[in-house]
Amino acid sequence: MMKNNVYALEIKDLQVKYGVIPALKGISLKVEPGEAVALIGANGAGKTTTLHAISGIVRKAGGSVIFDGKDISNSPAHEIVSMGISQVPEGRGIFSNLTVYENIKLGAYLRKDEKGISEDIQKVYDLFPRLEERKTQLAGTLSGGEQQMLAIGRSLMAKPKLLLLDEPSMGLAPIVVETIFRTIKKINRESGMTILLVEQNAQMALYAAHRAYVMETGEIVTTGTSKELKANDEIRKSYLGLH
């Protein structure tokens, strides 16, 4: 296969079951290097399951997940992180009993380059100055928006090639959501980091992403560039609340 044909991430006919209930009924999608792609859809559509199957938290029932040309769908979660995939979990998943600094540092758990780690901690602080102000505070005392910033900062510390974000807007005030998405867009556009983003807030997702897939009950039903989807009547009605 020629280099320019290698996708950053390619999912082929991926199936996941919870017990006997199918959560993903064979989905396929592709993400190009440097691209920001969104996965939008209602609650229970299978968006989070897709991310969990990529990062090895849940096991597939069939299909494959190809990252950088390798099938990773049978690898354990910690190995997937070391290959270069970092996930910002739904509900942030920060370690609230540790300080902000310790949380950020833990993101570099698999790295050994002390100097690079301290430089990258500074980069996270530059990206989110609020975190530097609160670095000695316990992470549990942060506001929801700050916790989301912390979760993103922590994920960046792993130096991922692919960043997965699960519902970064969840439970946040609209103004905070805007800040978060502006930063996500900045991470993608300025450092060229490949991003796969799961989001119920289709408006913000389409703002940050180049392309999107629309999911319904375990299947991908529509796909297109953000511009196309914003113009699509069906999408406008069902997901953007416009008429």
């Binding site: 990062s55 090895g56 938290i57 354990p76 979660a77 910690h78 992180v81 070391s82 970092s86 996930q87 979990p89 998943g93 920060i94 370690f95 609230s96 009993n97 540790l98 310790e102 833990l106 993101g107 758990y109 698999l110 922590r154 994920s155 792993a158």
Partner: peptide
Amino acid sequence: GVAMRATSHNLNSAKLIGINTD
């Protein structure tokens, strides 16, 4: 020890930062 505390606090988050939780 830090990995133990992280794992105890949130198993999935620990996995997602690369801790071999097993």
